[in-house]
Amino acid sequence: MAAVTRPQPELDDLPASSPPIDPWAQIVQGFDGNRSDLVPVLQRAQSLLGYLPPDAVRRVARWLRLSESEVFGVATFYAQFRFTPPGRHHVRICLGTACHVKGGVQMLETIQRRLGVGAGETTADGEYDVERVACLGCCALAPVLTLDEAIHGQMSVLKLQGILDAEASA
């Protein structure tokens, strides 16, 4: 691709709809603006920011001269990208075959009732984010979920309530 000479868009002047992105230089470091770098750039943005806020999508789009819709379309295709800020605690609920059979869905519903957020969302107080995964690799413990690094196996609705109560009072 021919060298691209253009002033940086004055994005600082746009009203910030989400937290300002400081690590922009880090995000694009080592990339030279080829459209084929889209996914690696998004991955780096997410690893630095924790998620992909609208500003990051807009900045990446302008930088690669793509439309925001195209960038968002690609990002939403992959399960690895998230668009809401991660919570301080990270709940992952397995809905793989074994967990599904053993009642993983009830675990997800319990979490939803308790925290008021569904899969892929973060509670308003930023305390928890919930993610559904396809397998955690310990099907013998089904239904299984993780809370941050801890694995909780052979869950029941009551056990889950207990764990959340303990967390809340901690």
Partner: peptide, 9 residues
């Protein structure tokens, strides 16, 4: 213009 795109999966 690429205002429209396929979103999600």
């Amino acid at each position: 213009t690429s205002v429209l795109a396929f979103k999600y999966r």
